[in-house]
Amino acid sequence: MSQTVEVKPPPARDERIARRSPVARLLTRPEVGALLGAIVIYIVFFVVAPPFREPSSLSSVLYVSSTYGIPAVAVALLMIGGEFDLSAGVAVTSSALVASMFSYQFTANMWVGVVVSLVVALAIGFINGYLVVKTGIPSFLVTLGTFFMLRGLNLALTKQITGNVGTNDVSNIQGFASAQKVFASTFNIGGVSIRITLLWWILFVIIATWVLLRTHFGNWIFAVGGSAPSSRAVGVPVNKVKIGLFMAVGFMAWFTGMHILFAFNTVQSGIGIGNEFIYIVAAVVGGCLLTGGYGSVIGAAIGAFIFGMANQGIVYAGWNPDWFYFFLGALLLGAILLNNLVRKRAEAMR
């Protein structure tokens, strides 16, 4: 898994540091719990489910992981910044619906619909963020509200405009082919077909990790999540950072929506509900603290990979898929407990 490669800070020059073992240092990373969990789950499925060992299976696990992992990149940043977004799952659907219906109804080039959809998705993020910072109401409640509103809008507007619960097929619209190349193409590496979302996912994880650890904006994300009043006191533009993070979630929701649209040509207006929790689960399993100020994008990527493995592995193992959500819940609890333990040990070692 290439996204576990991490940028290590250069060691400080102090002879007392040397006494801290590399293991101790590694254990202070937020994503350690998730990494251990991923290895264990991989081994379990590798042993119990022979089809899981096929390269094509890994490819489809990674594909499923990427469709959840892409929004989880921004959801993790938002959680580190101290906020939630429960509307992210249905915002994915809204984005796909807007692009599809805009281009179809106005017989516009597909790319026009794609851009209009981006503007709408960023606006949803902005409204979420603006309401949270201006009212001071917890983002859990604000985005619960926008979640229901978007869910209603998705169904109502789609039915109003198309007369149907889904959108019309857009594959004949000009620009569809090129947009499909960008958002939903497949290519072969050594006989294994790889979905392009995997590459986008890796790219987003690298960019987000770089921003988080290497730029002043990343410093501000940790700070506003760790203590908004302290950040404000030293001049960090707390409201702008938070609104920006909600808009980043909007962006990733848009991107995922575009993938769904160009992978399936039509969009069902009722999909996406519940996915917001999967993004949050991925972030939490990956070591993000619910209270903000701590976490990692690489961790969230590992979290999404665990989700993808479980999702597909159960099928390969021939288990009853009804157990999937039970398994997911148990995994979440286990991850939270493990992360807690790891963090406490890390603190004690310092």
Binding site: N219, A223, G226, S227, G293
Partner: peptide, 15 residues
């Protein structure tokens, strides 16, 4: 309001 507890000392210093 002096600092953000979970952040490293140097990140706090230059926050």
């Amino acid at each position: 309001l002096a600092v953000v507890p979970l952040m490293p000392v140097w990140r706090n210093f230059f926050l």
